[in-house]
C-alpha cells in the first residue's frame, strides 16, 4: 500500500530546531520508531503536512537513573529497554513489560514514548506509568511541562499533549524500599498479540508492605486500582482483593474478548501478580518474563 497524501520530511539536528519546526507547521507530526505512524500514513488515518524525524536527537536515546527516578528518552526502543543494564538493575519489571510488546522486528524500532503517544487502549506501557506515578516530559518553544501519567491519558488515542509540544521522555520515580513487580498480559494465544487485559502490580517491601496496582486494556485508558491498593496495604489478602476488581474496572465486550471474560481474568491475574511480586521480593519468585498465566 502506498501513502496517498504527500508530505515534507525534515530531520532536525537539535531539539530547538525540532520544536521550532513543530510550532511553525500546524500539520506536522513526529516520527520516532514509526511502527504506528507509518501504518497510519498508509491507511490514510493521518495526513500531516510535515513529518519530523527526531532520530538525530541523540540526547533522547538515553536511559538514565538520576534523582531516584528512571528516565527513558523518547527514542528508547523496547529492545533498548530489554538490553539496558540500568533497567535490569533498577526496575526489572519494565523488561517484563517490554518483552510482551509485539515481536523482535517491532521492538527494534518501536519506542515506549511512541506507545504512550499513540495511546491505544491496549498499550503495554500504560499501567506501569499510571501505577508508579510516572511523569511525561514535553517541550515546546514556549518551555517545558511535566504531566503526571494519570493526567496524560485522556481517552482512547487522546493525550494531554498540546499542539507544538514534543514528548522528550518519561520518568518513573522509584520507591525508596526494596520493591518487586509483575506485569501480566492476556492475549488470545502465546506469542505476539494485542492485550485483551493486563495487570501491573508493584510491591514495596518493609514492615508494612505497600502496593501499586493498575489495569490496561479494560477501559479507554490505563487505570489505577486505588481501592485494591488500599485493601492490600491494610494487610488484606490478594484473594480478598479479587472481590474489588469489579468496582475498579468497567471493561467492554469487543472483538478480542467479552466483558465477563475480561473481568474474570483480571481477578485471576491480579491474584497471581500479587503472589508473583511477593515471591520475587523475597527472591524465590518466578523469573521476570516467566509464563504465569
Amino acid at each position: 500500500m502506498a501513502i496517498q497524501e504527500a508530505f515534507e520530511y525534515a530531520k532536525p539536528k537539535t531539539l530547538r530546531e525540532a520544536t521550532k519546526l513543530l510550532r511553525k507547521n500546524k500539520g506536522a507530526m513526529v516520527l520516532a520508531g514509526g511502527t504506528d505512524l507509518v501504518g497510519y500514513l498508509k491507511e490514510g488515518f493521518v495526513s500531516p503536512s510535515l513529518v519530523i524525524d527526531i532520530k538525530s536527537l541523540a540526547e533522547l536515546k538515553k536511559i538514565e537513573f538520576k534523582g531516584n527516578a528512571l528516565h527513558i528518552g523518547a527514542l528508547v526502543t523496547f529492545t533498548d529497554i530489554l538490553e539496558s543494564k540500568v533497567v535490569a538493575k533498577k526496575l526489572p519489571v519494565l523488561r517484563e513489560i517490554a518483552e510482551k510488546v509485539a515481536s523482535v522486528g517491532i521492538r527494534n524500532r518501536a519506542t515506549l514514548v511512541g506507545n504512550i503517544c499513540s495511546a491505544v487502549p491496549c498499550l503495554d506501557s500504560g499501567p506501569v506509568l499510571v501505577a508508579m506515578d510516572g511523569v511525561v516530559h514535553v517541550k515546546s518553544t514556549l518551555g517545558a511541562r511535566k504531566i503526571p501519567a494519570e493526567k496524560w491519558f485522556l481517552g482512547a488515542r487522546k493525550t494531554a499533549r498540546k499542539p507544538g509540544e514534543l514528548v522528550t521522555g518519561v520518568s518513573i520515580p522509584l520507591p525508596k524500599g526494596k520493591a518487586a513487580g509483575c506485569y501480566l498480559k492476556l492475549g488470545r494465544y502465546q506469542g505476539e498479540d494485542l492485550a485483551q487485559a493486563s495487570v501491573f502490580v508493584l510491591m514495596v517491601g518493609g514492615k508494612k508492605p505497600e502496593f501499586r496496582v493498575a489495569f490496561g486494556s479494560v477501559g479507554p485508558v490505563p487505570s489505577r486500582g486505588r481501592r485494591i491498593e488500599k485493601s492490600l496495604n491494610a494487610g488484606e489478602s490478594e484473594t480478598a482483593a479479587r472481590a474489588l476488581v469489579g468496582s475498579e474496572i468497567k471493561p467492554i465486550t469487543d472483538i478480542r474478548a467479552t466483558r465477563e471474560y475480561r473481568l474474570h481474568m483480571c481477578e485471576v491475574m491480579l491474584e497471581r501478580a500479587v503472589q508473583a511480586a511477593r515471591a520475587r521480593l523475597t527472591g524465590d519468585g518466578p523469573a521476570y518474563g516467566a509464563a504465569i498465566i
Binding site: 511502527t35 507509518v38 501504518g39 513529518v51 523482535v104 522486528g105 517491532i106 527494534n108 524500532r109
Partner: peptide, 11 residues
C-alpha cells in the same frame, strides 16, 4: 531486523 513495510525509505 526491521519491518520494511513500516519504514519510510528516507529513514
Amino acid at each position: 531486523t526491521l519491518r520494511s513495510c513500516l519504514m519510510l525509505a528516507v529513514e
